[in-house]
Design a protein around this nucleic acid. Structure first.
Lengths: 151, 151
DNA sequence: TATTGTTATACTCTATAACTATA
DNA sequence: TATAGTTATAGAGTATAACAATA
């Protein structure tokens, strides 16, 4: 029995595991993964529908519907833009912020538990390598990993 | 500007990035992420609907529908079980195997490109840490990371 | 009675195309 | 004309509940 994983398998299996954990925590608060992701993005940004669609990798119509459903639950608000009256900015409500913080808290615990078997220095190295990978990928694709959306 | 990520952020961002890559490659073959995942599982197993539901973390009814749609595309077959006439086994067709191999090939290239910025020894260490984490997690949850489904 | 799988139903999520309002 | 966003439509994906067949 081969007890080793290829880089691809390790990354894929880890990604499914993490998504599953996130989905389960979100489910505890009766919210979907994509809704949670939406709220997570809005924690430090107030983007337009188009910007949101770009970040999420969705069509603007899909994004509009996503925001509709979040709004119906009182988690986000559409704020009319003064600069361009065609445009709106999507903003987290207090309820939305509480929601995403509750999910994030539980999930952070899951990650901590998952990393526990690793030695402390290995955990740090893992984080460092992933960060390096993500930063390089973002740079190669002209994305800002640390966008604050304050512009 | 803080150019560092927490463990949680690094893992989450990496998981979304990987899932997005996989989804894009699957989309090139007009297939969804979950369908691709189904086919991937079936590469080395011929599980029942219930077993599949367990692995995918879905309800058996959702799994039944998933298999329906894959079957309609000619990617899988339902094989009646001889041991228990209530049960069926889901098996990849030749077309399904071709499909999943085509997606996997493109995707392996994405992963290689993504890992390229890392030094070779760091790539190896990253894979080792992730594997260690996955093996420990599987053990803690009574799962077999290397199940072959030949039973 | 319990289990395996399917079906009916309802909802979320998604894309495409057509539309409205504004630029 | 072009762009921002919404709406109409269709389909995939999901869970719950009820069901049929088999154990």
């Amino acid at each position: 029995m081969a007890n080793e994983l290829t880089s691809t398998d390790a990354l894929v299996q880890a990604s499914f595991l993490i998504q599953g954990m996130l989905e389960r925590r979100a489910g505890e608060h009766d919210i979907s993964l994509i809704q949670t992701r939406l709220l997570g993005i809005l924690r430090d940004r107030t983007p337009t529908i188009n910007e949101l669609a770009q970040v999420l990798g969705l069509d603007k119509s899909s994004t509009s519907g996503l925001v509709d459903r979040a709004q119906r639950r009182g988690l986000v608000r559409r704020v009319p833009s003064q600069l361009d009256r065609r445009s709106v900015r999507v903003r987290l409500t207090d309820a939305g912020r509480e929601q995403v913080q509750a999910v994030a808290a539980g999930f952070a615990g899951d990650i901590a538990t998952m990393l526990e078997p690793l030695a402390a220095e290995d955990r740090a190295a893992l984080t460092r390598y992933l960060s390096e990978m993500l930063v390089a990928h973002a740079a190669a694709h002209g994305l800002d990993l640390f966008a604050t959306g304050t512009a």
